[in-house]
Amino acid sequence: MTHANIQLDENGHLKHFLSIYGLDRGLLLSILDHARSFAGVGDRAVKKVPLLRGKTIVNLFFEPSTRTRTTFELAAKRLSADVLNINISTSATKKGESLFDTLQTLEAMHCDMFVVRHANSGAAHFIAGKVAPHISVINGGDGRHSHPTQAMLDMFTIQQHKPDFTRLKVAIVGDILHSRVARSEIHALATLGAEEIRVIGPKTLIPTDIEAMGPRVFHNLEQGLEDVDVVIMLRLQNERMCSALLPSEHEYFHLYGLTEKKLANARADAIVMHPGPINRGIEIDSSVADGRQSVILQQVSHGIAVRMAVMAMTMGSLADTPTLESRDEV
């Protein structure tokens, strides 16, 4: 059975941004291009452009996250949109109000965009399938499935340092099983034509049949890092420790923690990334996180530009198809 791609409108423009899967290389490159245009806005006296003036964007967070919410909020404000932050703990929704009812209430308030974060995979797709046609939905992270804006800001960061994706070997290290970031990055890297994608971690944290998405699987960090250009370290949630998945922090750091010594296996000009927040001494050594090869802080500032790009593109998709004349002359 074939489904029309819910993320695109009938003209192939981005209507919702839910997952990297299903978007082509041209669209991903265009997100990166737009992000580059928006990157300068933060350096100006007035850190705003009037593009989304009069629009209302709702940050609908069913799962707490200060970092991601803040960058979405900043991105929306720099586009001159009005922002509403709504944090709904899942326990509250369990008490009666269904997700669907919540949406209807918000729609009645005449919102234009939802940024959704939810603990369950597919929540953003579900919401995009239910909202009124004029509303765009951006996935701010759903379960283990997808975190497309994080992946695109990582691609933006990589592109700043290594412009040609087709010559890159990229390693993603850590808890792949529970990571929506890893899944989105794998799709993004594969779509952008990366030469080789690797995932590195113990078998307990590598999901079944991940190879079908493209990456090579390594269980040994030193071997997996050989000759790579980019190392992406994932955050290890505390609750994974001392369970059937992992015995101890000590053992994990010993085997999979990134130290300067292990990083020496990668190419000399390799960059080190991390979506944050960092667990120093568990997945990454401080000397690496703060070291010469680390681009972790750049990732944070790129997050705003990338989210501005995605918000502008999805809201812009609602417009009629432009003609050459209307674009060229005002």
């Binding site: 265009s30 593009l51 502008a312 809201m315 009629d320």
Partner: peptide, 20 residues
């Protein structure tokens, strides 16, 4: 491009080179 008053009518220009 980011200051046009017809954004809601024509959407994003496909290639916007940043102001400098």
């Amino acid at each position: 491009a980011f200051y046009r008053d017809d954004f809601s009518r024509i959407g994003m220009h496909p290639h916007v080179s940043p102001s400098n």
